[in-house]
């Protein structure tokens, strides 16, 4: 097995892991019972999924051109910086709207 095919296997694994995580995030979005629980799927699984995809694409273009191609890192960086912010804003909006919560949820959200 030559070296380039070894890199190819790693890229393929990263792409598969990334899209599987994105799929799991979407499954969580459909399956979980109330809004606050649904919030967990996209903020974590999908973000990491795209992160893995981006690292795979970075490896691919670096190996193709022979010099490091790092600019895809910006997308991952941006997503990791913004995912908590949008999750926070959405949670605040949901608490403001007083959305229905799963009855077994312990603790109370605050009034906005």
């Amino acid at each position: 097995m030559s070296e380039s095919s070894w890199v190819e296997w790693v890229i393929a694994a990263l792409l598969l892991i990334g899209s599987l995580f994105a799929l799991i995030g979407s499954i969580g979005l459909v399956k979980l019972p109330d809004f606050f629980m649904r919030l967990h799927g996209p903020t974590k699984a999908t973000t990491l999924g795209v992160g893995a995809l981006v690292v795979g694409s970075m490896l691919y273009f670096s190996q193709k051109s022979g010099e490091p191609s790092l600019h895809e890192l910006l997308i991952t960086l941006f997503l990791f910086l913004t995912a908590p912010v949008s999750a926070h804003m959405l949670a605040k909006a949901a608490m403001h709207e007083k959305l229905r919560r799963e009855p077994r949820t312990r603790g109370e959200p605050w009034d906005q």
């Binding site: 606050f36 919030l39 967990h40 903020t43 974590k44 973000t47 990791f80 995912a83 908590p84 999750a87 926070h88 949670a91 605040k92 608490m95 959200p109 605050w110 906005q112």
Partner: peptide, 9 residues
């Protein structure tokens, strides 16, 4: 970003 928790407010 970490295990099953989201800071809401």
């Amino acid at each position: 970003l970490t295990p099953g928790t989201v800071s809401a407010d």
